[in-house]
């Protein structure tokens, strides 16, 4: 998680590039999210103050659009395409397999911050359906069984890091 201080500083830097015009609200939210990975409360307040808008209006716009997130994503962010072509090729089974393998529901981030799971409406790679994206890498023509295989290297990497983390904290 990002501290309030970090959020305040990052927002301050982003705001410096914009005029105080209401039409800049969405670009501001996008740039702050690109910098911090998500939109912490403090950042939303900072944007509202800057544009002299009520907090609730900024919150309203931010929650309206699918792009904005209010919790950080996992390090191995996983998205399942649930577009038409993917659905017809068994997208639901893929989604269920991911939920089972990651022990997460759609929209959740694991407590250790390693994995997160999201669904998207379509990433436009219909000829590769069904598609999963793990840490920005497209995994084409998934099957329930291949989901398990595709996750193995990431799970191993994540475990390696966890162990390193533990040994560091011990020493």
């Amino acid at each position: 998680m990002i501290t309030e201080e970090q959020a305040g500083k990052a927002v301050g830097e982003v705001l410096g590039h914009y005029k105080k015009e209401k039409k800049n609200l969405i670009p501001l939210l996008q740039e702050v999210q690109a910098t911090l990975g998500y939109l912490p409360r403090k950042a939303l307040q900072g944007i509202a103050d800057f544009l002299k808008m009520p907090d609730v209006e900024v919150w309203g716009v931010a929650t309206f659009y699918n792009q904005f997130r209010f919790v950080p994503l996992g390090r191995y962010h996983t998205t399942v395409c649930m577009g038409t072509a993917c659905h017809l090729a068994g997208g639901r089974l893929i989604l269920e397999a991911l939920e089972r393998e990651l022990n997460l529901k759609v929209g959740e981030t694991a407590e250790d911050g390693k994995f997160s799971l999201e669904r998207v409406a379509c990433i436009g790679c219909c000829m590769l359906a069904p598609v999963v994206v793990i840490k920005d890498k497209i995994q084409p023509k998934m099957t329930p069984f291949r989901v398990e295989e595709a996750l193995i290297p990431y799970k191993q990497e994540a475990r390696g890091e966890l162990e390193e983390g533990k040994s560091e904290s011990k020493s």
């Binding site: 969405i26 670009p27 939210l29 996008q30 309206f64 659009y65 699918n66 792009q67 904005f68 409406a121």
Partner: peptide, 8 residues
């Protein structure tokens, strides 16, 4: 350019 934020 105005970049959309994801709303059908």
């Amino acid at each position: 350019i105005a970049a959309g934020a994801g709303a059908f």
